[in-house]
Write a protein that binds this DNA or RNA. Structure first.
Length: 1077
RNA sequence: GCUCGAGUGGUGGAAUUGGUAGACACGUUGGACUUAAAAUCCAAUGGACAUUAGUCCGUAUGGGUUCAAGUCCCAUCUCGAGUACCA
């Protein structure tokens, strides 16, 4: 009987499906007493093109591992599902009008058929689809949890928003340490309790982990949607390659920045590939340095009143207000008097002034060096909250922090008040405002090398500080840079451009004026959008200074900076820098920060590149938000009313007024009484309100799917506690490296959030991750000659000018010969072209490229399965090389693994007419040895994910057993188990022929016995000066001396030495002999 | 530019803590079987020289450490991936 892979594979695929062979057991059902093991493939998007041979690579590897773990006695969870929301189905809907759900359903069918035919051991009873309302109900649920959470820096975790509200209403926000928006205004408990509900909601949005805010987003006009940073590659959209522009829009954002440090720290606890960790580290972009504030000297050097004393901070009406201030100083309230006694005694180590003019306000107390204002309010202020807020905003705008206390607080408990002020003095680096430019620098040690400041052209201060004389030039420059697209700016980093604002800042230490420039090499989106430029230590600053003839002071000892900047931190010794002179880098940084803190003009700071993630998409085919709007403020729909299902729309394009596609829906309003979605016509702005029109991005559905697989049918919770506590986390996660900074970062973020809120027991979702390499295509080219239009065979080009044209790889055989007639029929344009052949053949050119439809180099697994079978394809994909490595697809070698399977089959069918033969004879010593060295190697290989070498090992094993004419059950039974993870169909068939009725899938993995491999002798390689000359068989129990004697006595040794006396003989028993001399 | 990874026959790739370089396949060549083809089986196959015996050279390049280096160290080159003015 010959190896009929077609019927064998069909038979077992049906058997597995009918018997639910791979169903994983949840707690409470049989099988869950075993140890768990969770093997997961990255969520596939079911594209219309179906699978190509590159896709299954990772699935085969994970399947081998899953099957191996079952043999090892584990309860294995190996699920599969579909990330089925997404752009392609929607683009297709826009073009054809076909509902994306239909397209998606069809694509999934193709995927499922293709996956089934490869014999994967997935537990299909757990399948999830992100576009299924039963699934996205829980995506919406998580969104609500995020909305109802804030990040408490003190406990360093996310907490329920109610704990924040409690603090606000008892203590205000002065002592709240939270990750929140930058423009937070200070308020007291009384303020909070008096704020309108809308005002409270606005403030809370500044703290929530998902929040609605006007942000600058990447808008892609061609796709009609915003894109996340990771969806943009080289300045154009990842999908489609369309241009992307910056635009301000109100969008949902995720406060992932709160988790920057923990996302970084977590990388040390997981076994993920280093390059992947590196790119996440890079993306998070932590840099340690200092934030430094440079006061702005309002007028250019030498002009006007730059000599005006610094404490004169009043505005235009100063002359009117000074008298009033004096009067108030003489008649302080009781509370003011008490506080002033404490402040003027300098108990707090900072100088305060009382009843001082700031712009057009008289403030109660101010510390000018720390930009801190303290107001003491009586009962009257309760009635003028709005005015006070306006005043606070103006003062904030000028760069001051405002802290308010009530009279009763000051009189009642002065110590608490003083402690609060001390806290503020310590923590307050004045926010950026008209009074100063705050910059972030990693090199505070070079602060004496600052010779100019540079602001991003978009920086909000630019308009305020530019002098009349420079106005025209600055505006022209801003206009010119705004016109340059993101892409131009990136492509062209060599051109140096900028403009002088006419304004000057003051150096914190030398008090020298520093000119303020703008330049587009400074990015608005990073740090504060401003830099202190140190041309001697930074090449970009250096180039800028050279270009605009700005001085380049040298602050490095013994370094020549006449040609380029000096950026080496290790060799740095600071010079020309007052108190930093002679210090090396690290000490100088510390000292500089210490001195800046003393001045209140800077402090050590850690900066992250990671931005909050925009979470709104102006698309149809995505999760709807469980959100409706009351007076423009977002409201969450109670979780018991979820899911909010995607409405039907006439067309999938934005509305005429530019609203997202959901704006076309006519039944898209929320009735807060009936708690259901109703027609838009019922909106009354009392009980029926409009729903959110955006949908969630692609990564929403994939950020917790791995946990949902643990309990996918659960309708009451995202997963049961029993399920999550049993399965815990993913033990092995396999997928492509393209998800490094998208899916894998967002998933880690959500997992940490779920951990903080107590829903999951682990704060990292995947212990081990492997990136499988990409299988690239081998494109084929024909060459059309310029002018003549003749199509020339590759080796006849000889320098002629030709245009390469992709030919479909199915028209080319293994020897690179083209089926010319087939090509002519395929591309009708070439019907009448003349093909210039060599030796009667047309030879194509070959090139390795990404496998893609447009390059006509896609190889479909269906054809391979048809010709060689799934087991051959599985073995071959593994045999190609290491899993992590990228490699071009080349079918040439598949006959090798296919004939291996035939040999394996024959090993069990050695009888007459190839009939099945098995004997109970005791195996030979050699057969035992062959089997056990195979067990050892295969086990090691699987544990190390070195699947390619296992396949070789099987080949060697079968070759040896065939030569030994082995038919022993004692050998051939374990061999079938060994092979089963790799080639499960043939293994099942052989197993059943061996007389078993149960599936092979959970049979124990054969146990390795070292005793079978023990040898009594070794074929020693005998080397002379390290070069192997011959081998010599010697017993292994010889001592070093005995080996040496035996080797020296050998005739070939004497022949090699030709009478010379060896200087030294190295003997490593069991390994090698090396004779030196 | 920076970061990371990789360079081994005609090809995919093996090679344990440094210890016989090229396992296992593909391809190629020759042979067996066959009317023929397919399938199958056998043999050879890193390069150069040599009838044989054998000799020399060989893991990107140049150095180094070592009895011994594909493996460790230094420098250089090439390719791939990621990143893009990150202060």
């Amino acid at each position: 009987m010959s190896y009929d892979f077609r019927s064998i594979e069909e038979k077992w695929q049906k058997h597995w499906a009918d018997n639910k062979t791979f169903k994983a057991a949840n707690p409470g059902s049989a099988g869950s007493e075993k140890k768990k093991f969770y093997v997961l493939d990255m969520f596939p998007y079911p594209s219309g093109a179906g699978l190509h041979v590159g896709h299954p690579l990772g699935y085969i590897a994970s399947d081998i591992y899953a099957r191996y773990k079952r043999h090892k006695g584990f309860n294995v969870l190996h699920p599969q599902g579909y990330d089925s929301f997404g752009l392609p189905a929607e683009q297709y809907a826009i073009q054809t009008g076909q509902h994306p759900a239909i397209t998606t359903e069809e694509n999934i069918k193709t995927y499922r058929r293709q996956l089934d035919q490869l014999g994967f051991s997935f537990d299909w009873s757990r399948e999830v689809r992100t576009s299924d309302p039963k699934y996205y109900k829980w995506t919406q649920w998580i969104f609500i949890q995020l909305f109802n959470s804030w990040y408490n820096i003190e406990s360093d975790k996310a907490e329920d928003i109610s704990t924040l509200i409690a603090v606000f209403s008892s203590d205000g926000n002065a002592n709240v340490k939270a990750v929140c928006d930058d423009d937070i205004i200070a308020f007291s408990a009384a303020d909070w309790n008096n704020f309108s509900s809308k005002k409270q909601q606005e403030i809370l949005l500044q703290y929530r982990l998902t929040y609605l805010a006007e942000t600058e987003v990447n808008w892609c006009p061609a796709l009609g949607t915003v894109l996340a940073n990771d969806e943009i590659v080289n300045g154009v959209s990842e999908r489609g390659g369309h241009p992307v522009i910056r635009k301000k829009m109100t969008q949902w954002s995720m406060r992932i920045s709160a988790y920057a440090q923990r996302l970084l720290d977590g990388l040390n606890t997981i076994d993920w590939p280093q390059p992947l960790k590196d790119s996440q580290t890079n993306w998070i972009g932590r840099s340690q340095g200092a934030s430094v504030t440079f006061p702005i000297l309002a007028f250019p050097e030498g002009e006007g009143n730059s000599t005006r004393p610094k404490y004169m901070t009043g505005g235009n009406n100063s002359h009117l207000l000074l008298e009033r201030a004096k009067e108030m100083r003489n008649k302080p309230t009781e509370a003011e008097a008490v506080l002033w006694e404490c402040l003027k005694s300098k108990k707090l180590e900072s100088k305060f002034r009382r009843q001082h003019l700031i712009d057009d306000y008289i403030v109660d107390f101010v510390c000018l060096s720390k930009n801190l204002i303290i107001e003491v309010d009586g009962a009257i202020h309760d009635s003028q909250i709005e005015q006070d807020n306006a005043r606070t905003q103006v003062l904030n705008g000028l760069g001051f922090d405002v802290v308010r206390f009530r009279n009763e607080e000051v009189i009642g408990d002065i110590d608490t008040v003083l402690a609060a002020i001390t806290d503020h003095l310590k923590s307050s680096v004045p926010p950026m405002g008209d009074r100063g430019i705050t910059v972030f620098t990693t090199r505070p040690d070079t602060i004496f090398g600052v010779s100019f400041m540079t602001l991003a052209p978009e920086h909000e201060l630019v308009a305020k500080i530019t002098t009349a004389a420079q106005k025209a030039e600055v505006e022209a420059y801003i206009e010119a840079t705004a016109k340059r697209s993101e892409r131009d700016r990136m492509a062209d980093v060599k051109t140096i451009s900028g403009a002088f604002t006419g304004a000057y800042a003051e150096h914190p230490f030398t008090k020298e004026p520093i000119p303020i420039w703008i330049g587009d090499y400074v990015l608005a989106g990073y740090g504060t959008g401003a830099v202190m430029s140190v041309p001697c230590g930074d090449q970009r600053d250096y180039d800028f200074a050279k270009h605009f003839n700005i001085p380049i002071p040298n602050v490095f000892e013994g370094i020549d900076i006449s040609e380029e900047a000096f950026a080496d931190k290790e060799k740095t010794v600071i010079a020309n820098s007052d108190f930093l002179n002679g210090l090396p880098y690290k000490k100088a940084v510390k000292t500089a920060i210490y001195e800046l803190e003393k001045l209140g003009q800077g402090k050590g700071k850690i900066n992250y590149r990671l931005r909050d993630a925009v979470f709104s998409r102006q698309r149809y085919w995505g999760e709807p938000f469980p959100v409706y709007y009351v007076d423009g403020m977002p409201q969450m729909i109670a979780t018991e009313h979820l899911p909010i299902t995607l409405p039907e729309v006439e067309k999938y394009l934005p509305t005429e007024t530019g609203e997202p596609p959901l704006g076309n829906a006519t039944t898209w309003a929320w009735d807060t009484v009936a708690n259901k979605v109703v027609a838009n016509s019922e909106i009354n702005n009392k009980t029926v309100w409009p729903l959110e029109l955006n949908t969630m991005p692609g990564w929403a559905g994939s950020s917790q799917y791995f946990n949902r697989y643990m309990d996918p049918e659960n309708e009451d919770a995202i997963f049961s506690e029993e399920a999550i506590n049993y399965w815990q986390d993913v033990d092995l996660y396999i997928g492509g490296s393209e998800h490094a900074t998208g899916h894998l970062l967002y998933s880690r973020f959500w997992q940490k959030f779920m951990f903080d809120r107590g829903y999951v027991p682990r704060d990292e979702f995947a212990k081990k991750l492997i990136n499988q390499g990409m299988i690239t295509g081998t494109s084929a080219f024909v060459y059309r000659e310029d002018g003549t239009g003749n199509v020339i065979s590759k080796n006849l080009i000889n320098g002629k000018s030709v245009i390469p044209i992709h030919a479909d790889v199915s028209l080319v055989n293994a020897s690179d010969e083209l089926d010319v007639e087939g090509f002519k029929n395929w591309q009708k344009d070439y019907k009448n072209s003349e093909f210039i052949l060599e030796d009667g053949k047309y030879i194509v050119g070959r090139e390795v490229e990404k496998m893609s439809k447009s390059k006509y180099n896609v190889v479909n697994p269906d054809a391979i399965c048809e010709e060689y079978g799934a087991d051959s394809l599985r073995l071959y994909e593994m045999f190609l090389g290491p899993l992590e490595q990228s490699k071009p697809w080349n079918t040439a070698g598949i006959t090798g693994v296919h004939s291996f399977l035939k040999k394996l089959w024959k090993l069990y069918h050695s009888g007459a007419n190839s009939s099945f033969v098995i004997s109970d004879a005791t195996p030979t010593k050699d057969s035992y040895k062959t089997l056990h060295k195979t067990i050892k190697k295969v086990e090691e290989d699987i544990e190390n994910f070195s699947f390619n070498t296992s396949v070789s090992t099987f080949m060697i094993c079968v070759n040896e057993l065939t030569a030994q004419k082995c038919t022993s059950r004692e050998i051939l039974e374990p061999l079938a188990v060994l092979v089963s993870p790799y080639a499960p169909h043939i293994a099942e068939e052989l197993w059943s022929k061996l007389g078993h009725n149960e599936s092979i899938s959970t049979v124990d993995f054969p146990k390795f016995e070292a005793s079978y491999l023990v040898e009594s002798s070794k074929k020693y390689p005998i080397s002379f000066n390290g070069k192997m000359k011959f081998t010599m068989e010697l017993p292994l129990d010889l001592s070093k001396e005995e080996i040496e004697t035996a080797v020296m006595a050998h005739e070939k040794t004497q022949q090699q030495l030709q009478g010379r006396e060896p200087k030294k003989v190295i003997v490593v028993p069991g390994k090698i002999v090396n004779i030196v001399g």
